[in-house]
Design a protein around this nucleic acid. Structure first.
Lengths: 220, 220
DNA sequence: CTGAGTTTGCTGCAACTTTCAGCAAAGTTG
DNA sequence: CAACTTTGCTGAAAGTTGCAGCAAACTCAG
């Protein structure tokens, strides 16, 4: 059995609070948390099975809760619960070194390898970068308002921690928006992403580098 | 053959400029670009093979360049070059919709699921978040200085684009540093990440939520 | 000038993850 | 009560990761 990844601990973290069905786990993990640790939903069914193999969780088959059941003989579903070994694993995890955050930013790759793109495509890419970020930011503001308005949200005892993560997510998307706006402005005069032979000496390149150095050393 | 991912186009983007050996590709992709599109080095050997299968690149075996060779009979290596189909694929890519950026931030997950962590572990996590970000930021400032100082860096014709990506990377890591500093400060009075029964109504939770909303709606 | 370590340039393989189609039971709606 | 939607998953193929390992070339001390 290979070393466990954060997905495992994320699920253990949820199970530490209460039992969940596989479907509920898949649902929970694909909203909100998915901005900080995203996996496709298929994985949310694979991962708990590995926890069971490892002895960190137990699975049982159950019919849907009787209080919610209008008829008899409801279909079965899998319910997971954490074991003592699972709780120990979760504690151990907090003692191990953390991986550095990893970003996968296709838009930025497109920008860097804009050979063969038209200037319209180049600008569209920057615009859609900004738009995506704006709507993600709005989503997190929405979560924050909802949690603030209703103190008894789904994980009341983790509210203070989720609130902090929310602060980061808002800033993260804000940074992307600001970059996209700056980049559109900065490249306003360009007629082609790679046009002139002397592009290497475009003043904008040096301006950007100086900005990076200035911002990067500000306050340190 | 499944839909190609950015890794393929990233390699095509490099090949559009000149031929590369598999080893050189692996080297290039693992420095700098790796902050925006990270894959393990093994993948840098798998991916070009798929490009060849697809007809987007051609592979040939070559001995090391004669001008660099002190002796005869040097070992073979694989050299990739782009095909016309590859150039067309690269152009097509710029016309397709871009995926939203994806972040995988283990440190933030640890923060959210801090049940079972001690307050020291909780703070260490925030501190190492900040430290990692600080050193990554310094690395990008170093790149920027190097490119600024030496105008004939490895891709002179893409200098203006790399400079812009550098601006973003610096801001990204800065955002993480700022968050870590804020979070350490914000949680200064805590004695346990989950201690009191009334944590749900900790004033800090509401403060953070209001901050998220204020920051998230600022300027919009 | 030799042999011991280092760098170059990869490959093999097992485990994990993604992609995508699909299916059957329960619930909902016209 | 038939048709559609939602719930609650599974199968299978392909892509990715992580790690070990290997052989040719190079480099440097003795």
């Amino acid at each position: 059995m290979a070393k466990h990844k954060p997905t495992s601990y994320l699920i253990l973290g949820l199970l530490a609070h209460r039992d969940w069905t596989a479907y509920e786990l898949a649902e929970q993990l694909s909203i909100g948390i998915d901005s900080l640790w995203s996996r496709v939903s298929r994985q949310y069914y694979n991962a708990p099975k590995r926890l069971v193999q490892e002895g960190w969780a137990a699975a049982r088959q159950e019919v849907i809760a009787a209080d919610k059941a209008p008829g008899a003989g409801r279909r079965m579903r899998t319910v997971y619960s954490i074991t003592d070994a699972g709780r120990a694993a979760l504690r151990d995890w907090h003692g191990t070194p953390t991986e550095a955050p990893m970003l996968q930013f296709e838009g930025m790759i497109r920008m860097m390898f804009a050979d063969g793109a038209t200037i319209e495509q180049f600008r569209d890419n920057l615009r859609s970068m900004g738009d995506q970020a704006r709507s993600s930011r709005a989503e997190f503001v929405g979560y924050a308002s909802a949690i603030l308005a209703n103190p008894d949200t789904i994980y009341p005892e983790r509210r203070h921690l989720f609130a902090m993560a929310n602060v980061y997510c808002v800033e993260h998307f804000r940074t992307i928006e600001d970059f996209a706006a700056w980049a559109l402005d900065h490249t306003e005069a360009w007629t082609d992403p790679m046009a002139a032979a002397d592009l290497a000496h475009r003043p904008e390149a040096d301006d950007a580098l100086r900005l990076a150095i200035r911002n990067g050393t500000r306050g340190s």
